[in-house]
Nucleic acid binder design. Structure first.
Lengths: 226, 226
DNA sequence: GCCCTGTTGTGACATTTATCACATAAATTA
DNA sequence: TAATTTATGTGATAAATGTCACAACAGGGC
């Protein structure tokens, strides 16, 4: 167990900010901090779920087995809990989490976490808020997914990485073409083609995984009209 | 406000079962019970969200505006809360709810609900469990949606209505063809065609909205292979 | 009864996108 | 370094599905 002190942690979750000194002591004694390198699996579908995972730093993909192959459900950015649903109700993980960048994750004993919910209303409320926000965000993505064509989804995804994750129109996308396809529900080849199309139309510049958005207005337009 | 007594309610939510007598009194004084007929809107996207809606009896569709038209996000069956996410964090509804059958809904003052979370840990925990279960269920549907073809999704939807909602292989589907299309992300015409195909292959029998599953094994096979 | 509106089924066709095949490039291992 | 795997780009093709058009039908209101 990595020595760590939750009280002094600069990256507390909104929920944890409501814990008092005694509760922090309990948290410290029942949690471990673990580093993961890009590509490493944080937890895996079908394995027993013993802990709540809190993503302190880094970027992670949440994915699960689909009918024919792996489906990426969401990309999550620190700080956030990683899959409370997989640990609260179920004995085994219902999905997997894999690091897209170097990350640190704190594993918290599920029983301790549950006790905090039982005994600290503000903690519980913040957990509920996080779950609600995730649900709303997912709903919007799934509405897009169902009604936009593939170029629209590629555009939406690029905009999301630029605006929500990196806050920069120039970034290194931490997903392979194949990952992007699994995220938006299409094929690797289609993603490839659309990126070169966008590149030819001077909407973006692509160098392997390095992406620069040149004509953002047009990209937004493509995303919106589907 | 319809006169009602929550303490004696036979259809309490898992969360509400943890309330004590004083809390039930507060709930009674800050909630109303409303009946909706099939097709009536229970709450509407973009309207102010003032209450938590608890679906006591009936069946409801949750839907939101998509890029091109309405998207049905989920079908929910009583008893359950209806869209806690839309009421907890947001001032206006992020999605709509419409009755698919005659239903009764209890509207609970959001502040009271929030106070129960703050002060009653078991109540909060049950709310969290419900949110988690919904998330997991949605994830599985969206993995299917992304990877199955339309016949597979139609089959999956029919099986879901038979097994999860009506517990009968013979039922009246409360959705129009167009609704089914919005639920699985396809076109009205495709749903129509696939239902007649299934009918021709003696997998199901269709009379308007009356559906009988004849060859369930084959339907499951179609659903699984996509 | 009759009109109007909304739902449904179905054929013809166009479009999108997946699949297959292969070449190339990059990364990893021996 | 060579050899091997893995990721990527791109053309040709086929399959799935959306779109359009129209007919049939049901239900509601007048």
């Amino acid at each position: 167990m990595t020595q760590h002190k939750c009280t002094d942690c600069m990256i507390k979750s909104a929920a944890a900010k409501n814990l008092n000194i005694e509760e922090f002591e309990i948290l410290e004694n029942n949690s471990t901090s673990v580093s993961f390198k890009k590509g490493e699996i944080i937890f895996k579908q079908d394995a027993p779920s013993l802990n709540i995972a809190y993503l302190r730093t880094g970027l992670v993909k949440i994915h699960m087995k689909g009918p024919s192959h792996e489906k990426i459900l969401r990309i999550v950015k620190a700080p956030t809990y990683l899959g409370i649903p997989t640990s609260m109700d179920e004995k085994i993980n219902q999905f997997s989490a894999t690091a897209l960048e170097d990350t640190t994750v704190c594993f918290i004993d599920s029983n301790i976490f549950r006790n905090f919910i039982y005994t600290n209303g503000k903690f519980a409320y913040e957990v509920i808020l996080e779950l609600c926000r995730n649900e709303l965000f997912d709903y919007q993505r799934y509405a897009s997914l169902a009604q936009k064509q593939v170029p629209g989804m590629v555009a939406e995804t690029l905009i999301c990485f630029a605006d929500k994750i990196y806050h920069d129109n120039h970034f290194n996308i931490p997903l392979s073409r194949s990952d992007m396809a699994d995220l938006i529900g299409t094929s690797r080849e289609s993603v490839s083609r659309i990126l070169t199309d966008f590149s030819n139309e001077k909407i973006i510049e692509v160098n392997n995984n390095e992406i620069s958005i040149i004509n953002k207005d047009l990209l937004i337009q493509i995303s919106e009209k589907g």
